[in-house]
Design a protein around this nucleic acid. Structure first.
Lengths: 339, 339
DNA sequence: CTGAAAGCGCTAACAA
DNA sequence: TTGTTAGCGCTTTCAG
């Protein structure tokens, strides 16, 4: 491998000169476009390799007006859920020549605006972003970008272009149904106090509505700030049970705090699921291996990523109504009484 | 917000015409470069906003030969460790105008080559990548890019340009020292069988060398394939203890399987840390909240990300020898006997 | 199958 | 303080 120490990055012209082939033909070879004789192709590839040429996509993108980037905008990387969505997106994009570029908003609408603006300035081929709730500036940017825009995770609301996700209201309602069917009646809720966590909010709304239909209201609720952890789950569980010892079920807004609650309850000798049932949300398989499997709802994260990517890549048509509804799946686990 | 439905994306020229200011001056306003009168600035900003103009960084990058992107290449997003590194990078890059672009290799050298090639073709301002071991093509690409290249996580080996990380040999050796000091002698190891997981390999080497100095060899070892999970930790722990019931310590190659092992041992009634000690690696605080805190080593993930980003951003000079060595920190936890 | 010319949208460098 | 000119490195288009 000849490594000529160049301060200036190599250009097509360098390869052209080294191979004695016109820039245009070099470009064709390097992109596998159009017909090029085997001999010419060989000359070009050899020259490119020995020089160590790396094409300049900035220039290419400007000339072709096409950029193989997909903007992916998510609230966080630090819990298990978005990395899994990303995995689905990345897997499905793999054979399309498209590349995901990730922006993280930390659940801040203003950061979402900034990240979106920044990503759009790269003129990507599509945008995938979490949630249906966006600021006015963000909506304005997205309304007329003229690219596929896929909003993921949630389908309870209006999509700008296309939405791929589950109904969190339904997920909440279905969990309520399972809990009631199992005979629990004094139910507490533990969740984040994040005004911006719209999906958790909708889940709780669906949950409470279903309870209300059975004439039941939440017997207690406990909110917390900041990230989820086992430790947090323990503390909140202790607190809510201290306040309301008669609770017979705890619905957690995610599996992580649910698992913390589960560990605490087991240590304290609670009869689970006999006297006290527990459920989380997400279906994080990382937690398989706890003393009991936490009852939860699979939020279909990987599938959501895949479907969103397929639509952006044009592998799958955008549905008429713009909604791709996946079904949240109840995972019974061991922490709810069996019907 | 006037939303003119345009198929063609807006250009500087549109803003120029709408505001009656030359393109060049519009450009200056939008980038806060050079002196522009307040009146002109106002005209431009108003026009840009009402049109909904989003600059084209592709064109800007080509013209200025500078791109505010930092390529970050990591093996995986699906365990806790790299997202945390990313968090550090992202936090430190926040006020620099640089933006991280993440590529994932899934621990495959050939994917690393592909991802690196792809990212370099965007002409980023710097490259941060995990590990010191790279394929020949990757080294060739990096040797002469003429950008800051920071290899992270590991410092046991030769850096291309700069390395920021911990010595995994040392981390392994120090854990061995702690284990021996606590009086354990029949020690087993449980880790991934990934030929490409160089850091785990070096940790184990440092661990065994230190044991050897005390005349001790590993009494058993158990390898596994694929990702780490609590479940996997349970299974491997059961297996190794079935084979070698006399073991008095288990060293796990990461906290996740260590935690699985811990849970299994607690259920089986092992006396921990009395008869059996356990240790992991990473210092994942997500796991705080287990019945006992697992003894482990803090791998300084966030700090590594921060320092790497600082160097790429030029906030901090590249050290003479190209090595930024952070100290792995022993976290005693509850699963090792106290000296 | 190969090449020449024109320009993508912006900014560096210079001029006014 | 503002404007003009000339590209950045590639691909589109059209001609051979």
């Amino acid at each position: 491998m000849t490594t000529k120490r160049t301060s200036r990055p190599l250009t097509l012209r360098d390869v052209s000169e080294a191979s004695g082939v016109s820039e245009m033909t070099v470009s064709r070879v390097l992109r596998n476009r159009g017909d090029v004789s085997a001999a010419t192709r060989e000359k070009v590839l050899t020259a490119a390799r020995t020089l160590g040429y790396v094409p300049n996509k900035i220039a290419g993108g400007l000339a072709s007006q096409r950029v193989n980037l997909v903007a992916v905008i998510i609230p966080s990387l630090s819990n298990m859920v978005f990395p899994e969505v990303l995995g689905g997106i990345s897997a499905e994009l793999d054979d399309t020549g498209l590349q995901p570029v990730v922006g993280v908003t930390n659940y801040s609408p203003s950061r979402e605006d900034a990240v979106l603006y920044d990503m759009l300035s790269w003129r990507p081929s599509g945008v995938i972003l979490a949630g249906l709730e966006h600021s006015l500036p963000a909506r304005a940017m997205l309304d007329n970008v003229g690219l596929p825009v896929v909003e993921i995770m949630d389908i309870d609301g209006d999509a700008i272009d296309t939405a791929v996700g589950i109904s969190h209201r339904r997920a909440g309602a279905e969990m309520a149904a399972e809990i009631l069917a199992a005979g629990y009646r004094r139910i507490g809720f533990i969740g984040t106090h994040m005004p911006e966590d719209h999906r958790a909010r909708k889940r709780l709304a669906g949950f409470e509505e279903h309870l209300a239909q059975a004439g039941i209201t939440l017997a207690a609720r406990e909110y917390y700030q900041g990230g989820s952890s086992l430790q947090k789950g323990r503390e909140l569980t202790e607190r809510i049970l201290a306040r309301e010892p008669e609770l017979d079920f705890l619905y957690f807004s995610n599996d992580m705090i649910g698992a913390g609650g589960l560990l605490w309850c087991l240590e304290k000798g609670y009869d689970i699921p006999g006297k006290l049932g527990l459920a989380g949300f997400n279906g994080v398989d990382l937690l398989d291996g706890l003393p009991m499997r936490l009852t939860t709802t699979d939020a279909r994260r990987v599938d959501i990523g895949r479907r969103a990517a397929r639509i952006v890549a044009g592998k799958e048509p955008r549905p008429e109504n713009g909604i791709v509804a996946l079904s949240p799946t109840f995972l019974p686990g061991d922490t709810i009484r069996k019907g």
